[in-house]
């Protein structure tokens, strides 16, 4: 079972050793009510396979899209998500919290 964040990091290592492009996304900061605690990981490969979570599913799609860019250019990125109130179409957290997510490539 891959429920803990460290098992997810083991998967990241295994995927990379198989030769896949891999990025790790980590929740580094939360404000208000956030679905997943600081330190939670989401691991993404170049074919958009993913394991783990950084929210309850609200922003994963957006993190995966950014992760593909990180896998492509190798530059880490800091993403921020909040309540989706600015525009109806923006991705956000329905719980009203805010999170910062650090995305880095496994080299």
């Amino acid at each position: 079972m891959q429920a803990t964040d460290t098992d997810i990091l083991k998967a990241a290592e295994d995927w990379r050793r198989e030769g896949r492009g891999v990025a790790i996304a980590t929740v580094v900061e939360t404000w208000g009510s956030a679905p997943r605690p600081v330190g939670s990981h989401l691991v993404i490969d170049e074919d958009t396979n993913f394991l783990g979570s950084v929210s309850g599913g609200c922003v994963e799609g957006s993190v995966i899209t950014e992760a593909l860019d990180v896998i492509a250019d190798g530059k880490p990125r800091m993403l921020e998500f909040g309540v989706a109130d600015e525009t109806a179409w923006q991705v956000g957290l329905s719980c009203g919290g805010r999170i910062r997510v650090y995305v880095e490539r496994v080299d």
């Binding site: 460290t6 990091l9 083991k10 990241a12 290592e13 990379r16 050793r17 790790i24 580094v28 880490p76 800091m78 650090y102 880095e104 490539r105 496994v106 080299d107």
Partner: peptide, 29 residues
């Protein structure tokens, strides 16, 4: 993250030893 750093972290876990990965947010080091 360098792959060897990731495997070292995972190795500490399987040996039941605590470890901390320190990331400089600005430089990525």
């Amino acid at each position: 993250m360098r792959l060897n750093l990731l495997s070292d972290l995972n190795a500490e876990r399987s040996a039941r030893r605590a470890a901390v990965l320190v990331t400089d947010i600005a430089s990525g080091e």
